[in-house]
Simulated scan of single mutants.
Amino acid sequence: MSVLAKDILTPEQLALVRKRSNFRGTWLVFHAWAIIFGTMALFAAFPNPVTYIVAVTVIGARQLGLAILMHDGAHGILTENQKLNSFLSQWFCAYPMMAETGAYRRYHLKHHANTQQPEDPDLILSAPFPITRKSFRRKMVRDITGQTGYQQRKAQILNALGKSEWPLEQRLKNYRAKLGRATLAQLAVFGVLAASGHWYLYFILWLVPFLTWHQAVTRIRNIAEHAMVPDNDDPFRHARTTKANLIERALIAPYWVNYHVEHHLMMWVPCYNLPMARRFLIANGYGERMETKAGYAEVLRMATSRPDTDDKPGSVIHNARRRVSGVTSEGFDENQSAA
């Protein structure tokens, strides 16, 4: 089942929600980095356990924000000017997050074309839900302690280095092709902090949030977007919009990532226009049809509603693989969801 935008919004509404802005896109990228470096400066000025924990959570969430802005760049909607869109998305969003906009675009558009269907590459993110609270706690412990992030980055770097039997020159060439620019971006972040006289912040307030809180909120975001949706075939209900309060927007759902139904209905709407798109859809009578939850706490209660008596480490992987193979059209990410 598909829905055409012209059937749910008026021409005037469509013109407003599709409008892209060079200023707003650039501002959001600047905003993310300003919060990241500003939070680092706050900790450097007032170093103590409380400011450190606050810094890790705030910076980890803004790192997710950079990934979200890269996502808009992959759709070509971060800014109106496409050269600016690509430049900002690649060098200020994707590469610092050890990603690449073009590769992400090729993967992500398959998700939009086959949302919650067997061909959906993101299907593997939602299969095990609901899970037990014990299973969820294990996942969050792995995320918060950096185990998930470490395993992902280790696999990424080993893949970039290629086969161990390759000559060193070939392995380095392969690494440069796959992660060369991402490595330059990491060196740039380190260089800025070193120039400020606080080189150590790269390790404790860039890498630590990247490997910990960023992983945790990415998992929560993934759960909220598609896990346990009521209808895999209805565009209004095969994704979920989660209402976010100020704290959730700061620490879990930056840059309107929580408006996921609206994004799937109209993937060409910039993130900064998604709240407007929702208002128009509600005004046009589609509010009750859209899958919406009151907050992330409600989603997580649903996600962990399976009785703890059913908890068997390892069974989540087996069940998810079985579901992806045809029993149901849900799925999961083994790197983040293995019990």
Rank of each mutant, 00 (worst) to 15 (best):
I77R: 03
F190E: 05
A320R: 00
N319M: 13
L28Q: 15
L207R: 09
Y52T: 13
L172R: 04
T10R: 03
Q116F: 00
G331L: 04
A127M: 07
R323V: 05
H198L: 11
N81Q: 10
V192F: 05
P307C: 05
G60L: 05
R279P: 01
T148H: 03
A45H: 13
L66T: 13
P275R: 03
L125Y: 10
R176I: 14
V269F: 03
E288T: 08
A94H: 03
V229R: 02
L161Q: 04
N81G: 08
L300G: 02
I220A: 03
W268E: 15
S21R: 01
L281P: 02
V50P: 05
V316G: 06
L179A: 03
R142H: 11
L168W: 13
P275H: 02
C271H: 14
L205M: 15
E119Q: 14
N114D: 04
K243D: 12
V54Y: 07
N159E: 14
T115Y: 00
D120H: 06
Q186G: 05
Q215V: 10
A103D: 12
M276E: 09
T101E: 11
R105M: 09
P96V: 10
E298V: 08
Q63F: 09
R249A: 12
P11R: 08
D231K: 07
I144R: 10
A160W: 04
G314T: 02
M228A: 12
A61K: 00
L246P: 01
F236P: 01
M1D: 13
A160P: 04
H108S: 06
L109P: 03
V29L: 03
A194M: 12
R301K: 15
F87M: 13
G102C: 09
V189W: 07
S126E: 06
N159A: 09
M290H: 01
E262R: 01
M1N: 13
D231C: 12
Q152W: 12
I282H: 09
V257F: 01
Y52P: 02
T148C: 01
T132H: 00
L300E: 01
A338L: 12
A41W: 01
A224S: 02
L251E: 07
P209Y: 11
H226Q: 14
Y272K: 12
I220E: 04
H112T: 07
K134L: 15
H112E: 10
I220N: 00
Y150T: 08
A45N: 09
R106H: 11
E288Y: 08
A160H: 02
